[in-house]
Amino acid sequence: MPRGVAAIVICAIQLVPLYITLTVALKPQTDLSSYWALPVRAAWSNFARAVESGGLIRAFANTAAITAASTALVVLLAAMAAYPLARSGSRLNKTVSSFVLSIMMVPALSLLVPLYVLLVRMRAVSTYWGITLVHVAFNLPLAIFLFTNFIKTIPRELDEAAVIDGSSIYGIYYRIILPLLKPVTVTVIILTSVAVWNDFQYSLYFLQRPSMRVVTLSISSFFATSGSDPHVAAAGAILAILPVTLLYVFLQRYFVKGMVDSALK
């Protein structure tokens, strides 16, 4: 039984911030009771106000579109790039691999302004394709890394056998390798889409038209600057994390398995 007790304690610790945010979200601004106390009567109006003044519905649609597009491109480009990098150990490819790895370490902030100037020149600020390409560029390295590691576990004998059968290298890639990539693709989709969905930094600077605002921006504008109501802000925060949370609860197996497949080769 101590195992069960420990489990409850662990869960409680992880759920405390969520619980508190929920009680705050459900109380009107006039309710000065402890955050631990459940509200006497749920103030759903906080949620309504969050949706209304934050334009949350539009924000959800924008975020979903950008996330889907970025994720698709990341999967496509990373799955392509990883194959030669996994198979050929030439000096060139080793250099490319370490270049890709080093990109993962570039702090986004050191690039913010030059990147912004670049996007302006490309007329890409406040466009869906602009933010999508930025997300793709910065999420690709991890995806390439994961795909490469995965492809390394696919026996080369498969490739060699196909060559003997007269396949071209692209034929091998398309017919033999690609179909085997399903598990790692799930990982990449999950990691990328969560990263893009939760992004705050890039969207803040590259999506400045309010009609294009994404969820994290809407929420932070509740918390930022003067005159904000913490209860409405809490309601917004709850709504913002709801989709990913639900998706995770129902598709948990994939979320966890994906992470794991990538970790252990």
Partner: peptide
């Protein structure tokens, strides 16, 4: 899976 900014705000209530 929760955005780190939002997680920070949630902890702030504590």
């Amino acid at each position: 899976l929760i955005s780190a900014v939002i997680m920070g705000y949630m902890w702030y209530y504590l």
